[in-house]
Simulated assay, not measured.
Amino acid sequence: MRADAERSTARILEAAEKVLADDASASLEKIADAAGLARATVHRRFASRKALVDALSERFNDRYRHGIDQARVGTAPPMVALHRLTESAFEVKTSYRLVVDLSHGPDDDVLAGIDLLFARLHESGVITAAQPTWCRNVYLALLHEVHLLPADAAELADGGDEVESRSALLIRSVLGALGGKPQPRS
């Protein structure tokens, strides 16, 4: 793809993230306007709305994969990795609200990374639940619910910034649900 076409595609995706997060039913024309491009340019890059949402989903999963890598789920102390992954997950959910709302969840690579982390948490004795898939499902369900809490929810009043507060609540809830105890971050 030529450099100008790549820039146009990036502009379209960035505009789509913002526009669709505010209005999930926004037209491709509205996205083109927000990107500062002609509607025909958007249609050349994305033949349909589904193709555009699929591209956003791929970006969403790239960010999740990056979060898995940054958390070092296979090598960092498990609780450190859990904290890093959780903070990254809230940042991704905030940036990719539309993709999350359309149930385009994490791909198989991301799910495998989360499963590895929960297997390591079990092996280290942090949690008693032994099935990584179950642990992951509990984590993702609670992640979604904590994400939906309004910023002024009493559950989030721990004095930190919003991502830290949400992360702390999620980790406490997940550890409690999976038979664990709060651990220092090390």
Results as ranks from 00 to 15, higher is better:
residue 1 M to T: 09
residue 2 R to P: 11
residue 3 A to D: 10
residue 3 A to R: 13
residue 5 A to Y: 09
residue 5 A to F: 08
residue 5 A to R: 14
residue 7 R to K: 10
residue 9 T to S: 13
residue 9 T to D: 07
residue 18 K to H: 11
residue 20 L to K: 00
residue 21 A to L: 02
residue 23 D to P: 01
residue 24 A to D: 12
residue 24 A to E: 15
residue 25 S to L: 11
residue 25 S to T: 10
residue 25 S to K: 08
residue 29 E to T: 14
residue 30 K to C: 05
residue 30 K to M: 12
residue 31 I to H: 04
residue 34 A to W: 01
residue 34 A to I: 00
residue 36 G to F: 03
residue 37 L to Y: 13
residue 38 A to S: 12
residue 39 R to Y: 12
residue 39 R to F: 09
residue 44 R to I: 05
residue 44 R to L: 13
residue 48 S to Q: 08
residue 51 A to N: 12
residue 51 A to S: 13
residue 51 A to I: 08
residue 53 V to H: 02
residue 53 V to M: 10
residue 56 L to W: 01
residue 61 N to Y: 01
residue 62 D to K: 06
residue 63 R to N: 04
residue 63 R to T: 02
residue 67 G to I: 00
residue 73 V to Y: 04
residue 73 V to A: 06
residue 74 G to E: 15
residue 82 L to K: 08
residue 83 H to F: 07
residue 85 L to V: 05
residue 87 E to I: 00
residue 89 A to S: 12
residue 92 V to M: 03
residue 93 K to L: 11
residue 94 T to I: 10
residue 95 S to W: 01
residue 103 S to W: 02
residue 103 S to D: 15
residue 105 G to T: 08
residue 106 P to V: 10
residue 106 P to C: 11
residue 107 D to H: 02
residue 108 D to G: 06
residue 109 D to E: 14
residue 109 D to K: 12
residue 109 D to C: 04
residue 110 V to C: 07
residue 110 V to L: 05
residue 111 L to C: 04
residue 112 A to S: 14
residue 112 A to C: 05
residue 112 A to D: 14
residue 114 I to F: 08
residue 117 L to K: 11
residue 120 R to K: 10
residue 121 L to M: 15
residue 122 H to G: 09
residue 122 H to D: 04
residue 124 S to Y: 08
residue 126 V to I: 15
residue 129 A to G: 02
residue 129 A to M: 05
residue 132 P to F: 02
residue 135 C to K: 04
residue 136 R to L: 05
residue 136 R to N: 03
residue 137 N to W: 04
residue 138 V to D: 05
residue 140 L to W: 05
residue 141 A to P: 00
residue 144 H to W: 07
residue 146 V to H: 07
residue 147 H to Y: 13
residue 149 L to C: 10
residue 149 L to Y: 03
residue 150 P to I: 02
residue 153 A to F: 11
residue 154 A to T: 12
residue 155 E to R: 14
residue 156 L to G: 13
residue 159 G to H: 05
residue 160 G to H: 13
residue 160 G to R: 14
residue 162 E to A: 15
residue 163 V to T: 15
residue 163 V to G: 07
residue 164 E to F: 07
residue 164 E to D: 15
residue 166 R to S: 12
residue 172 R to S: 13
residue 173 S to K: 09
residue 178 L to T: 08
residue 179 G to Y: 11
